[in-house]
Simulated assay, not measured.
Amino acid sequence: MTDSKQAFIHPMAVVERGAELGAGVHIGPFCHVSAGAQLGDNVDLASHVAILGTTIIGAGTKVFPQAVLGAPPQNAKHTGGPSRLIIGANCTIREGATMHAGTDSSRAETRVGDNGNFLAYTHIAHDCIVGDNVTFANGATLGGHCEIGNFVNIGGLTAIHQFVRVGDRAFVGGFSGIVGDVIPYGIVSGSRAKLRGLNIVGMKRSGMSRPDIHALRAAYRVIFDRTRPLAENLEAAKTQFEADSIAWQIISFMNSKEKRQFTVPPVGGLADDGSDDDD
């Protein structure tokens, strides 16, 4: 249902019959909103925005020109069946950004959390799950089926391979290619990215205590000790940090029933964050 008294629709915009518009929605010139769209209160489409298919956008989200949201997945397995894109509240989606709906033969849903900041020409592919409070810099790209945690920062012109997971509060440097899972709180970068340490700055900014930072660093050193295989290190970490809920965030992330590839430190690199100064 459209609340025409409170929603503004520019006369040069096209809003198909069946679209649901919340109170205070603003739809600028040359926008196209499909019949299956649902726009929450105070959603703002600046101009030249395409909202396609079954796309649900949370309250307060602002979308800039040339963004295309909810297009069918770029997946040959998609047969045209029902699928959708869900975007959370209070997101900023800048110029030329694209987010695709899910694949009908898979999750059939792409989901983006609240308070995301997606800069120009970012791309979220089919069947991805993106957490809250993320930042994607210009040109950051997700392949299909990726899972991105909360408070993740992804640098510009970075590509993340399909099915890769990135843990909470990780930092991904610009110009990087990510082909393996990134642990929570990790910093990764490189054309075939390597783990460079822990996001100490991000931990401090989040208010994490000094003892918790030390616990994460200790777990990091055990898990990525080069003298033993990674699987053996992970078992040792389970025993050593069983009672530590902070360290367990990394351990549980890596303790998947599936066989997964992880982004690890470079050969010859220190299995540490490179700094002993946590003040």
Rank of each mutant, 00 (worst) to 15 (best):
T2N: 11
H48T: 07
M208D: 10
K259W: 13
A59G: 14
A236S: 12
G96D: 06
R260F: 15
Q240I: 05
E232H: 12
E242V: 15
P82T: 11
H100G: 06
S252K: 04
A236T: 15
A97D: 04
S245Y: 12
N138T: 01
V182L: 03
T61C: 03
M208G: 10
Y121G: 02
L216T: 06
A247V: 02
N133L: 04
V63R: 05
L234G: 03
D225G: 07
M12L: 14
S191Y: 04
I160G: 01
N233M: 08
M203P: 02
V267G: 11
R94L: 08
A35L: 09
N133C: 09
G36Q: 02
A19T: 10
C91H: 11
R169L: 15
T2Y: 00
V201H: 07
G268C: 05
K77N: 10
I148N: 01
D272L: 09
R260M: 13
H10F: 07
R192H: 07
I27R: 06
K62N: 14
V68Q: 12
F253C: 05
E16H: 13
G96A: 04
M208K: 10
I154Y: 00
V267A: 07
T79G: 01
I246M: 15
L230V: 09
P73C: 06
M1N: 11
G197W: 08
P229M: 05
P72R: 08
T2A: 11
G274P: 06
I51V: 08
D225M: 04
G180F: 02
M99I: 06
R205A: 07
I183D: 15
D277N: 14
V264N: 07
A271W: 01
F8E: 03
D3N: 13
D114H: 13
M99L: 04
I213N: 05
H78M: 15
F136Y: 01
D278A: 09
A215Y: 06
G36E: 01
R196D: 07
T54P: 12
R196K: 15
P266R: 13
N117D: 10
G96V: 03
K77Q: 03
Y185C: 11
V43P: 14
R111P: 08
D114N: 10
I154K: 00
T141G: 03
D278S: 12
I86H: 00
D168R: 02
D168M: 03
S106I: 11
F253I: 01
A170N: 10
W248H: 15
G18C: 03
S245R: 09
E235Y: 02
G22H: 02
V182Q: 04
S252H: 09
I51S: 09
I213F: 09
G177V: 03
H26E: 14
T55K: 07
C146M: 08
S206F: 05
F163N: 04
A271K: 05
C31H: 05
I93A: 07
V68A: 13
S189N: 04
E20D: 12
S256L: 13
R107N: 06
V134Q: 02
G28K: 10
G167V: 00
D114S: 07
E242L: 00
P29R: 10
G156M: 04
G53S: 08
F262Q: 09
P65Y: 00
D272N: 12
V63W: 01
L230C: 09
G156H: 01
S4A: 14
L230I: 01
G173K: 02
T122A: 10
T103P: 00
D3M: 08
V130G: 01
G197E: 14
C91W: 09
N233C: 10
D278H: 14
T263Q: 08
K257M: 15
A101S: 12
S209C: 11
